[in-house]
């Protein structure tokens, strides 16, 4: 086959090698179908089904699976205060976390890139280090640091005679969880933005520097606009991660009773599927979360005119 393709004119080569492309794509296609496409289709199917119970639900044939139409969705969206509550909590969590995390990541990246600051190598490694710590472990460490008997902050506050708020109380627990996300995520996003900053040719702002522009003005007027595509992508990925927050609240649960089993939408999906054995409404809720992610992602990308991925759509 090789010799044949070599011998044929250019068009023939392209056609033959084109067929080979399917060989390269085959493993990815099989895995994509089995572990992405099929689960999505299956979740859609389950979300439209339900179980009908005859009599006491005992014996053979007493429980039958039937089509349920959109009733699972109606229940998830309108009839279930647990779901709406979890959406509200995660919305607040995201509103606190994402702007803080990206704002700090941008600030740190600009300082790393600026000329004057010292201890940049040490700071870069230290701030990036939490990315190596799994969310479960991070939650565990912060969980202990939140306990009044361990927390150094509360100790200092107590010594100074300040109030010592219980960070795991109903009022603060969302912020306590957002802080864990911030700790784990700020370094990674900083590196993304910093990498984009390093790619800016210095001629771009050398002229401004010669004209006497301050470092702050250069950062704000030149550097931030140039790294906008990176900011867009970090925002997008942070938003997706926010919608599926699961490990942090699940890990903190044993330390406090202010985190319910339906604190985040995904925790509710987990409870429905495995505690209540109601895989149908769990599937409907998963589909709603996935759709919300798509709508938010594409809406956001449209809003910023697809600047991030556009150069790759060749």
């Amino acid at each position: 086959m090789n010799r044949a393709t070599v011998a044929t004119p250019n068009r023939g080569v392209r056609r033959h090698t084109g067929l080979r492309a399917y060989g390269y794509l085959a493993p990815a296609a099989v895995l994509f179908t089995l572990f992405l496409a099929l689960p999505i289709v299956y979740a859609l199917y389950l979300s439209l089904r339900t179980v009908k119970v005859k009599g006491l639900g005992l014996g053979r044939g007493a429980r039958t699976e039937v089509w349920a139409g959109l009733s699972n969705y109606r229940h998830a969206l309108v009839g279930d205060p647990d779901f709406l509550g979890s959406v509200g909590r995660v919305a607040l969590y995201g509103l606190v976390l994402v702007p803080t995390m990206l704002g700090l990541a941008l600030l740190f990246a600009l300082l790393l890139d600026a000329r004057g600051a010292r201890a940049r190598g040490f700071s870069r490694v230290s701030i990036f280090l939490p990315y190596a710590v799994p969310a479960v472990i991070a939650s565990l460490l912060w969980g202990f640091l939140y306990l009044p008997r361990v927390s150094p902050f509360l100790y200092v506050a107590g010594r100074l005679g300040w109030p010592q708020p219980d960070v795991l109380s109903q009022q603060w627990v969302t912020f306590a969880i957002a802080n864990i996300g911030l700790w784990g995520g700020v370094g990674f996003n900083m590196i993304v933005i910093y990498t984009a900053l390093k790619a800016i040719p210095s001629e771009l702002y050398e002229a401004a520097r010669l004209d006497g522009a301050s470092e702050a003005a250069i950062a704000w007027r030149i550097k931030v606009p140039v790294v906008a595509p990176s900011l867009i992508l970090t925002f997008l990925f942070s938003m997706i991660a926010t919608l599926q927050v699961f490990a942090e609240p699940m890990t903190l649960r044993p330390l406090t009773n202010t985190i319910s089993s339906t604190w985040s939408p995904l925790m509710k999906v987990y409870r429905d599927a495995f505690t209540r054995n109601d895989i149908y409404s769990a599937a409907a809720t998963s589909v709603v979360i996935a759709l919300a992610t798509f709508v938010l992602s594409f809406g956001f990308l449209r809003l910023v005119q697809r600047r991030a991925f556009s150069q790759e759509n060749s």
């Binding site: 700090l104 600030l107 740190f108 300082l111 790393l112 600026a114 000329r115 004057g116 600051a117 010292r118 201890a119 940049r120 040490f122 700071s123 230290s126 701030i127 280090l129 939490p130 710590v133 991070a138 460490l141 912060w142 202990f144 640091l145 150094p152 700790w183 700020v186 370094g187 520097r209 010669l210 006497g212 301050s214 470092e215």
Partner: peptide, 29 residues
């Protein structure tokens, strides 16, 4: 110009060190 570009940025250094301390604190704990 050159002196403003080389002037040590004390506030920037402090901000970076606070960030580093925040990130290292749970690890030290």
């Amino acid at each position: 110009v050159s002196s403003s570009a080389r002037r040590p940025n004390r506030i920037g250094t402090v901000v970076l060190l606070i960030g580093a301390l925040y990130c290292l604190m749970p690890v030290v704990w």
